[in-house]
Design a protein around this nucleic acid. Structure first.
Length: 579
DNA sequence: TTAACTGTTGGAAAC
DNA sequence: TGTTTCCAACAGTTA
């Protein structure tokens, strides 16, 4: 193979281990330029919250260090890839561009444009799969009609066949890379650096113009104090090892997702960990999902009585693959309208209710505590995600799952559209799961895990002295108890914005009607009638401000609660619409 | 074609 | 403290 100047474009896969695209780039490269584009679409759009941007910068720092240990370095280009990559190609006379395939909707459009740009310049584009266990195109070809399935068990059959045909093969990290020298950077000139998205960036010397910027240089606010997950491949591998070695592997072997606790006080701790907390590392590709799968398989081999999918740790990796395949093969997956797998449900659009949910002032301590942890730490347990998602959508507030998904995508460290949107559809009974009569209670559910409310007391300190009896429904506490706890409901903590017992029943009626309408319309595709005529074009692997409830919202909340309560209650009085 | 089966993680009551 | 049963009844897959 001829030796060619090659650009390797890091996007996800912020790692050296098990990186097929990187190894393909190195193979046959006379020079190798490892670049990362700080794309303003992500960085200065408000789409990505502070905590995740900090996590990204930490991951880039770690990657840069690892590359420097191999005589290379990371070259950070600040700007739109469609501008920066052609500039770099010209400056370096690059003949090849290599990157890992990314199936997110934005990435697909971006990469199609980049591929076209490269074609026009005669630059060879080299791509590899690596973010998922499998080549998703090949996996989808094994599905009947090439269409994604929406059931996990059926998906596992297809995945099993694909893995038998193409067994997982984890790759070693490169031993050496062609060096990057200062002259290479000089060739890029100052133009790229001055196109930095942040005009307020402090002056930096020439050597640093392509370095990983500090948070200050990007005008990022500080990470919220509670954030203790540090980004990067090094940390990812250390955390994975810590999980694997816990109890000599017995912990991994016995792991069953539904029995982990959403009210863990120290979820990131070494010995109290209820889940792996590896999801942010998988999201950015600091950790290879295939390596995680292989290492867990080795533990299973030594523990014959290990857990099985869907609840096992392997099961979690397969859920990730499931959502990725579904997202990759479904048009408009990330939205309701024109999404063929998504039930069309007439959600209401009430900014007040959405804001109360987002800002942790629903008056339900379990919900508000979880939303506070989400904002503070950028992570909440999978079951806490279920609870707040159900509450926002079909359970209580009847707001669109898309609105909730946007909030998660801003705040979660592990925000991943395929998984996040899939789980939102699941919880809102829009796809994958349809038993809408099973509804999370914001009172009963947390009691199963945390009878005394330690989790609520941590995240909502104004409730810390409340009696355990009322910790999940403080409005029921006698005023004497409220005074004793120094927390008057309606002043120091909001009254509930809705009556769960009433609205959840009313909402089941609404779901019943929406499902009946779906059936009457022919059952199959969503989006055939409603809304968007425009249309083409998409989170858990847990393993994916205002903080607590200010006052002043009680009045509006009460008014809202009354209007909600006027909805028809009993499905018995509502005739079912049969086809 | 129809019917049975299955579905990662509900709640409340009964034991 | 933990397991079983009912509640009222969904859709996608499979036999």
């Amino acid at each position: 193979m001829p030796s060619q100047p090659t650009i390797f474009w890091f996007r996800k896969a912020l790692r050296l281990h098990d990186n097929p695209a990187l190894l393909a780039a190195i193979d046959g490269a006379s020079k190798l330029y490892p670049v990362f584009c700080l794309d303003p679409w992500f960085v200065s759009s408000g789409r990505v919250g502070n905590n995740r941007l900090h996590f990204l910068l930490q991951s880039l720092q770690d990657l840069d260090s690892s590359l420097r240990a191999l005589d290379s370095r990371l070259i950070v280009l600040r700007g739109d890839p469609e501008v920066e990559l052609p500039r770099a190609i010209r400056a370096w006379n690059a003949e090849r561009l290599a990157y890992e395939i990314d199936t997110e909707p934005y990435a697909k459009i971006r990469d199609a444009k980049i591929n076209e740009m490269a074609r026009e310049r005669g630059v060879q584009v080299v791509t590899r799969w690596g973010h998922t266990l499998t080549d998703l195109d090949a996996l989808l070809k094994r599905h009947p009609g090439g269409k994604p399935t929406t059931t996990y068990s059926s998906f596992l059959n297809h995945l099993d066949k694909q893995l038998k045909a193409v067994p997982l093969a984890v790759l070693n990290k490169p031993r050496q890379l062609p060096p990057v020298v200062d002259a290479d950077l000089a060739g890029l000139g100052a133009s790229a650096a001055t196109s930095a998205s942040s005009s307020a960036a402090p002056a930096s010397d020439a050597a640093d113009a392509f370095g990983v910027p500090s948070a200050a240089a990007l005008c990022l606010g500080p990470a919220t104090s509670g954030v203790i997950l540090r980004g990067g491949e090094t940390e990812a591998l250390a955390r994975m090892e810590a999980c694997l070695s816990q109890q000599g592997g017995a912990w991994v072997a016995a792991f069953e997702k539904p029995s982990t606790s959403p009210t863990e006080i120290d979820p990131f701790g070494q010995h109290t960990r209820s889940t792996t907390c590896l999801s942010p590392y998988l999201k950015f590709g600091c950790l290879s999902a295939r390596v995680l799968h292989e290492r867990v398989a080795a533990v299973y081999a030594a523990h014959p009585k290990h857990a099985k999918p869907p609840t096992s740790l392997h099961g979690q990796v397969y859920w990730r693959e499931f959502y990725y395949a579904c997202a990759h093969g479904t048009p408009n997956y990330e939205m309701m309208a024109a999404n063929p797998i998504c039930r069309q449900i007439p959600w209401e659009d009430d900014p007040e209710l959405l804001a109360a949910w987002r800002e942790a002032r629903t008056g339900y301590p379990w919900i508000d505590a979880a939303m506070t942890q989400l904002r503070e730490e950028g992570w909440i347990h999978h079951l806490a995600r279920h609870a707040v998602a159900c509450f926002l959508t079909r359970g209580d507030l009847w707001q669109s799952w898309e609105k909730g998904a946007e909030v998660f995508e801003e705040l979660l460290l592990d925000a991943d559209p395929a998984i996040n949107r899939g789980n939102w559809m699941w919880l809102s009974c829009s796809c994958f799961f349809y038993q809408y009569f099973r509804c999370y209670s914001p009172v009963a559910f947390p009691k199963k895990y945390d009878k005394d409310g330690a989790y609520v007391r941590k995240w909502l300190p104004q409730l810390k002295d409340f009696p355990a009896k009322y910790i999940y429904e403080p409005w029921k506490a006698p005023i004497a108890d409220q005074k004793k706890a120094n927390c008057i409901i309606g002043q120091d903590y909001p009254k509930p914005i809705v009556n769960h017992e009433l609205v959840s029943k009313a909402n089941m009626d609404r779901m019943n009607k929406a499902y009946a309408a779906h059936k009457a319309a022919g059952g199959g595709g969503g989006g055939d009638e409603g809304g968007g005529d425009k249309g083409d074009e998409g989170d858990e692997g847990d393993e994916g401000g205002e903080g607590a409830g200010g006052g002043g919202s009680a009045g509006a909340g009460k008014k809202r609660a009354l209007t909600q309560q006027k909805l028809p209650m009993s499905k018995k009085v509502l005739p079912r619409v049969e086809p």
